[in-house]
């Protein structure tokens, strides 16, 4: 089977800083649930930013999606549709007047018609069980609701792969369990960067560790049941 996303020979350094990634490799297959653990500053968030084409230039290496290297702006636009990135702070991702507008934002920019975008938005909100919040402004939502809202906004673009940056941060127990339930039932490839090993044990099956610029495969564990 062809990997969905490949990172090949990635070398990267912030200007004036030592090398952060040295020939880093990563392969994600469809529907695979993977986590990346590592110390603060190891570069987990940076790796996600590089995959999404938000940071550059790369010193060396390729980002390959569905077997095709990302080179042009058009490729990048396609990648940003296929790969959804949930930022660490949902406040950064909920920038519209209401949650519904936020979920609509991606589909409309993808060129869907208004009706199609509306249908899509409601479908995602229903899936996450947050339809009741649709017309609330983001500052009226709780921490857990904001997280789900941002996830809805990402899912509305129908990505094949989700990159989640510390998704369990700041959630209370109920929201924490709810998010595990949702992620287990999403039929997409997921990569989670997190410190919350308890959370990860419930969701992922493949463990990687990012340290000294390289990704090291740790183990395969079957996802635990809550």
């Amino acid at each position: 089977m062809m990997p969905l996303l490949q990172v090949e020979n990635l070398c990267f350094a912030y200007p004036g800083n030592p090398m952060l990634f040295k020939n880093l490799h990563l392969e994600i297959f469809p529907k695979e649930k993977v986590c990346i653990i590592g110390k603060n500053g190891a570069g987990k968030t940076t790796l996600f930013y590089i995959i999404m084409g938000l940071l550059g230039p790369l010193l060396k290496g390729k980002i390959i999606l569905e077997g095709k290297e990302i080179r042009t702006k058009k490729d990048l636009r396609y990648l940003r549709r296929k790969v959804g990135f949930l930022l660490q702070d949902p406040e950064d991702q909920l920038f519209c007047p209401t949650l519904f507008d936020d979920v609509l934002f991606g589909p409309l920019n993808m060129g869907l018609s208004k009706d199609e975008a509306f249908t899509k938005a409601w479908q995602v909100l229903k899936m996450l069980n947050i339809e009741d919040l649709a017309h609330k402004p983001p500052y009226a939502l709780s921490g857990g609701q904001k997280r789900l809202g941002a996830l809805a906004a990402v899912l509305a673009m129908d990505p094949e792969l989700l990159l989640l940056d510390e998704p369990s941060n700041g959630l209370d127990e109920e929201a924490w369990k709810n998010l595990i339930f949702i992620l287990r039932n999403i039929d997409k490839a997921i990569v989670i960067a997190s410190h919350d090993t308890n959370f990860l044990e419930h969701v992922v099956s493949h463990w990687y560790e990012l340290s000294s610029g390289k990704l090291r495969f740790l183990s395969k564990t079957p996802g635990r049941i809550l």
């Binding site: 930013y49 938000l54 959804g84 930022l87 920038f95 934002f105 920019n109 993808m110 906004a153 990402v154």
Partner: peptide, 8 residues
């Protein structure tokens, strides 16, 4: 960045 990711 988040806006760009959603095709702004």
């Amino acid at each position: 960045d988040a806006m760009l990711l959603r095709g702004f």
